[in-house]
């Protein structure tokens, strides 16, 4: 098991979060952390960062492709970099506390 984070830029349309979360459920992934925020410079677009535990790279790739395929997803990137993921998690924790 290793942590992976991916980031998606999404077109802010009704139900996009539900649609993407449904894909995680369908692919049997549990989300460790989820952060979504509207881009201040571009109100139509939100950035979504998701951290999850990944066992199988092939299955994870299928998940990314399914997310990328959604009509309102503009861009998806993923990061296997532990450092970046931990930084993101610390940042989210700070926001929560």
């Amino acid at each position: 098991m290793k942590k992976r984070m991916f980031t998606a830029l999404v077109h802010n349309q009704n139900g996009i979060l539900t649609r993407l979360m449904g894909i995680f459920t369908k692919h049997q992934y549990q989300i460790e952390s989820l952060a979504v925020a509207v881009y201040p410079e571009l109100k139509e677009v939100s950035k979504m960062s998701v951290v999850l535990e990944v066992e199988d790279d092939h299955r994870f790739l299928q998940l990314l492709k399914q997310v990328n395929k959604q009509i309102d997803v503009l861009y998806v990137s993923d990061s296997p970099d532990d450092h970046a993921i931990n930084r993101e998690l610390v940042y989210i924790k700070k926001l929560l506390i």
Binding site: N14, T18, R19, G22, I23, I71, D72
Partner: peptide, 13 residues
């Protein structure tokens, strides 16, 4: 919209 999200290419309200 909730019910049909996973079985539509796209949906709207």
């Amino acid at each position: 919209v909730g019910i049909t999200t996973p079985i539509t290419k796209q949906n709207y309200q």
